[in-house]
Write a protein that binds this DNA or RNA. Sequence first.
DNA 1: GCAAATTTGTTCGTATGTATT
DNA 2: CAATACATACGAACAAATTTG
Lengths: 272, 272
Amino acid sequence: MADPMYRQIAEELRRQIESGELEPGVKLPTELQLRELFDNASRNTVRDAIRSLLTQGLVTTRPGQGTFVAHRIEPFQITLSRDTDTGLGGGEGIAYRSAALAQQRKPEASTPEVKIQAADEVPARELRVPAGTSLICRHQVLRIDKKPWSMQTSFYPIEFAAKAPLLIQAVDIEQGTVRYVAETLGFEQVGYQDQVSARPPNSGEVSFFKLPEAGVVVIETIRTAYERSGQPIRCTVTVWPADRNRLVYNIGEVPKEIASPPPSNDPGNGAG
Amino acid sequence: MADPMYRQIAEELRRQIESGELEPGVKLPTELQLRELFDNASRNTVRDAIRSLLTQGLVTTRPGQGTFVAHRIEPFQITLSRDTDTGLGGGEGIAYRSAALAQQRKPEASTPEVKIQAADEVPARELRVPAGTSLICRHQVLRIDKKPWSMQTSFYPIEFAAKAPLLIQAVDIEQGTVRYVAETLGFEQVGYQDQVSARPPNSGEVSFFKLPEAGVVVIETIRTAYERSGQPIRCTVTVWPADRNRLVYNIGEVPKEIASPPPSNDPGNGAG
DNA sequence: GCAAATTTGTTCGTATGTATT
DNA sequence: CAATACATACGAACAAATTTG
């Protein structure tokens, strides 16, 4: 008599899902059927159980259709340590495209949305300017196979605009901003620090990434890039839904076939 | 008139919390009081709203006491790229202790729990052995300031036991397993790959880390270490509750004062 | 194209249990 | 012990989305 009933129901269903008795994509019994299966529990009690599975990401519900065992998407593996070939930081410019192509996915980047903004807490701290300072802010959405995959916002000191005017224009910078900043301003990116955290998605992220309302979390990376003198030259905040992304860092000597993964033979097809 | 009522209530409360109108630790009105504040909604509707805030990690509830705006714990920042001083991988052995001490926290590691286990999918893939192969499995819990902070399990090929007998004993290995394996087996760790993902905690993790039931997610890192010939010599899976950990990777040249953060002047006091 | 049936989503009311003060 | 406050459980009704005939 330990657990409340809705938990017991959830436990039993979870067991069936994790044991493979209920395979991904399979439709669960309807709420009314589950009611009968579990000691004539109330429909609300059954729903409490299902909600618990929802927040664990084990099932998704579709109004008018039913409750389904969640698919696991084949995650896209993106290397964020420095690419030994391009010398660029992982995930930056070309590196992102080639990583996607290597896994036989079709990468796509939106035209950036550019604003001048008062510095929020994070970019202010990272770029070592007082909060509220105006910053160049370039926001971009990355898609793979037409599906939204990550969302990133880069912040630059406003002074950069004088010599690097493209930064404040809503255009794709062909050679990549890293190289562009180096060429126009002489700030060569010699290193960067990534801070990795994770959290539940906010409502904007839920709708943008079409997350199944609950159960999927996002990883947030804060990358601060430095030039030779030790001055920060860029701060990039990226949001990665955790169901479709896996971040990789290679440190020291790692076998080449591991460092750059071979094409997956199981093309991720997404859900439903 | 778009959103259902419980969402509107949640939105309003969320606004008040994020604007600072309701500060961390402050008690929200009781469910019955909220009922009156919001158009005499049903108590269940108010509870739906609160549950939504719960899963976003914005509030915690305590039976008999009330609903409180969640504290943000001062996250422990742990560098997982190679430590330039010790040469060890971040988070390993000494590196973990010194990182904790540098932030004026008291680190503590449980005596490891050691088993011989059939290889699960992850360690089998990473160590390139068939699933089901016996592996040495060392499980350890790390605490900071007496609170559970992370949980890690390392897997080694079973053959290592012959020359490195301490691996299969439930003892702390003084000099760290990385150095021990190098000295006894001649396998020097020349590099490693970290795979970072995030997910909702399972029920065991919820109870072990005393997570507030929802709203907190865990980061999972899979570290595979390689020796000079390219053979994998260890696979370590670590689970980090995201509310109290922030993972850091330094790539290339990063200013020293950034790479090893100075002691925080705001000692994290945890919740409650 | 429309109507009916099915299924999940929202909202209400009520009663009782359990933890804390 | 009593009061307070959240947790669980039940039943009922209607709404909204989807499929089916």
